[in-house]
Simulated assay, not measured.
Amino acid sequence: MITGLGHTGFWVDDLETMRDFYTRVMGLTVTDEDDDLGIVFFSSRPEEEHHEFVLQRGRTAPRGAKLTHQVSWRVDSLESIIEFHKRFRDEGIEVQQEVTHGNAIGIYFFDPEGNRNEVYLRIERDVRQPFRKTLNLDQDPAAILSEAEQLLQDGTPSYQPVQ
């Protein structure tokens, strides 16, 4: 019986740039690495899980090739989503879309090698998926939650990807 995802990883070209991004920007902890093999192991909860994410040199696909759909990182609060919103803007990180899924609020973004990621906050409600509408994260938390609720009820199509 599967109880959850253990870890995932990317083959990369520039391990140093990617290591910096996932530690400094995303806040993950390096739990192990081997320079000779060109591999780094990361965890968001190193006291509980040795690694949830791995990077290793050796990417053979050209930039833009669709390899991984996305890696989604669950966060603990709406304030964390707002902090990532500001951090990505300050760092010049390419953001695809900031959204409500009805059952989550998230930010889709790209790491330095173009791999799509998401940071998201789970909202405890059931909403039929796909549900994706752009959300303005340049507001205080109460206004963000209010807008997310309005978007859930506004009667427009439930899936509105980036134009």
Results as ranks from 00 to 15, higher is better:
I144T: 06
R132E: 08
R132D: 03
E113N: 12
R128G: 03
P141T: 13
R128W: 03
F109C: 03
N103V: 01
F110K: 05
F131P: 03
A142N: 14
D140Q: 12
N117F: 06
Q139W: 09
L152P: 12
G102D: 06
G106L: 05
Q153P: 00
Q153H: 15
V119H: 04
N115V: 02
Q139R: 14
K133V: 06
I105C: 02
F110H: 10
D140Y: 07
R128C: 01
S146H: 15
K133I: 07
L135T: 13
I105S: 00
D126Q: 13
A148T: 11
D154M: 12
Q129V: 12
L135N: 09
F110Y: 15
E124V: 07
L145C: 07
F109R: 01
T134Y: 01
R128P: 02
D140C: 05
T134D: 05
A142K: 14
R116N: 03
L151S: 11
V127K: 01
D126G: 04
S146F: 08
D140L: 06
G102H: 00
E149Y: 08
P130A: 08
N136A: 14
I123P: 00
V119L: 03
I107S: 05
A142Q: 15
L135V: 13
R116W: 00
L152S: 14
G102I: 04
I105V: 11
D138G: 08
L145D: 07
N103Q: 07
N103F: 01
G106S: 14
D140E: 14
G102N: 05
N115Y: 15
E118N: 02
G114V: 11
Q129I: 11
Q150A: 15
L151C: 12
D140R: 10
Q139E: 10
L121G: 00
E124W: 08
N117M: 04
T134R: 10
F110M: 07
D111L: 02
Y120V: 03
I105H: 01
D154F: 07
R125A: 07
L151I: 13
D138Q: 14
L121K: 06
D154N: 15
D138Y: 06
Y108V: 05
E113V: 11
H101C: 09
R132Q: 09
F109N: 00
D154P: 12
A148V: 10
Q129D: 13
F131S: 05
N136G: 10
Q139D: 02
K133P: 12
P130C: 10
Y108T: 06
R122K: 09
N115E: 06
G102W: 00
G114E: 10
P141E: 11
D154W: 12
L135S: 10
G114S: 09
Y120F: 13
R122N: 04
Q139N: 11
A143N: 13
L137A: 09
L137Y: 09
P130R: 09
Q150K: 15
L152C: 14
